[in-house]
């Protein structure tokens, strides 16, 4: 079966009901797409199909025939968003990170093109289907907003009275 994977036309022979997630990980060797729940709750398996973020654990391989699939491995050249995830510590354990980045990428691209910084509420609504258990999301918002040109605002540090 043919589909476009990260810009390259790719042929894979796999059962049509196999989950896109498993085809990517097992048949294509792209393990950057993660499985967190297998039921579309956590968003760790998010990839872009024809530009739209979807949960690859809920899509049969047969449904991406001739589609354009993009995974974290397809974000070439370390985008501003990826760099911001590093500098703002939007990734802690990192398992939700590829999904978060792919979910946020279309928003960041749009905002960058429009020369605006997405509002917190917009970022939150965009990421509502991506669970992170490490960060409390704060650093993730910061990474997305700084990737769009916002100034980084971090926690305050106060010296002690006693020691």
């Amino acid at each position: 079966m043919l589909f476009t994977l990260n810009g390259k036309i790719t042929e894979v022979s796999a059962p049509s009901m196999k989950r896109l997630l498993d085809v990517l990980r097992e048949d294509c060797g792209l393990t950057g797409t993660k499985e967190g729940c297998g039921e579309g709750e956590c968003g760790a398996c998010t990839v872009l199909v024809d530009g739209l973020p979807i949960n690859s654990c809920l899509v049969p391989f047969g449904q991406v025939q001739n589609a354009d699939v993009k995974t974290i491995e397809g974000l070439i050249g370390h985008t501003d968003l990826q760099k911001a995830f590093v500098s703002e510590c939007g990734a802690q354990c990192g398992i939700c990170t590829p999904g978060m980045i792919l979910m946020a990428a279309p928003l960041v691209e749009r905002a960058q093109a429009e020369g605006r910084i997405p509002a917190l509420a917009e970022v939150q609504e965009t990421l509502a289907g991506n669970l992170c258990r490490c960060t409390g999301y704060v650093a993730i918002y910061r990474a997305i907003q700084t990737a769009c040109g916002a100034k980084s605002e971090q926690a305050s540090v106060i010296s002690g009275e006693n020691g």
């Binding site: 579309g40 979807i54 289907g129």
Partner: peptide
């Protein structure tokens, strides 16, 4: 529709 799943589920 805005309250169903996350955007990934809404897309599908």
């Amino acid at each position: 529709a805005r309250l169903i799943g996350g955007c990934q589920v809404q897309n599908r």
